[in-house]
């Protein structure tokens, strides 16, 4: 289903959900939950957004039914730890590549995905100062290295 323009800020979180459907359904579930919560704040009044959000809710309910036995889904505190570990793993991978001077598309994507997953952590409550800093750094690094590679420059 096409994403209405008003809900564009959640498109990358929804794409991350899709990419993790098979690899890590817990990540996919919480990315969609974040998209749902954020989408409702952005616009749940216009018919096209309502229709989109109702479909997204249907999808979340069916995922919960399917994955209900998984502690990371049935207990949000376990889910919180799962998403945080996953985000930090991605961050550390990209950071190691960066420090080793290995700049490539995969590490840019890991920095960016880590920042998106740190956004997702906000469904569990306010982000810690450390996670806010990691998110800011990861997003900045992803943009900076992407621009360097695009312009044929070596990141510093």
């Amino acid at each position: 289903m096409a994403l209405p323009a008003q809900l564009k800020p959640i498109q990358h979180h929804l794409r991350t959900a899709q990419e993790h459907e098979k690899r890590d359904p817990v990540v996919a579930y919480y990315c969609r939950l974040y998209a749902m919560q954020t989408g409702m704040k952005l616009d749940s009044k216009t018919p096209e957004c309502r229709k989109f959000l109702i479909k997204l809710m249907d999808q979340l309910e069916s995922m919960k039914k399917e994955l209900g036995d998984n502690d990371s889904i049935s207990q949000e505190v376990v889910g919180n730890a799962h998403i945080e570990n996953y985000a930090l793993k991605m961050f550390l991978y990209a950071d190691n590549e960066d420090r080793a001077g290995r700049f490539h598309k995969n590490m840019i994507k890991s920095f960016y995905s880590a920042s998106l997953l740190l956004d997702v952590l906000s469904v569990f409550g306010e982000l810690s100062e450390e996670n806010i800093q990691h998110r800011k750094y990861a997003r900045w690094k992803a943009t900076y290295i992407h621009n360097c590679l695009k312009n044929g420059e070596t990141p510093q």
Binding site: L33, M36, Q37, M40, S44, K45, R50, L53, I54, M57, L60, E61, K64, E76
Partner: peptide, 27 residues
């Protein structure tokens, strides 16, 4: 009719919020 449309929208919004709370075991 705009009042009716906005009342339908608001009740659908409530329904979404309720479904979200149920999903998260908050009701």
């Amino acid at each position: 009719s705009s009042t009716l449309a906005s009342s339908v929208a608001s009740s659908e919004q409530d329904e979404l919020s309720q479904r979200l709370s149920r999903l998260r075991g908050q009701v």
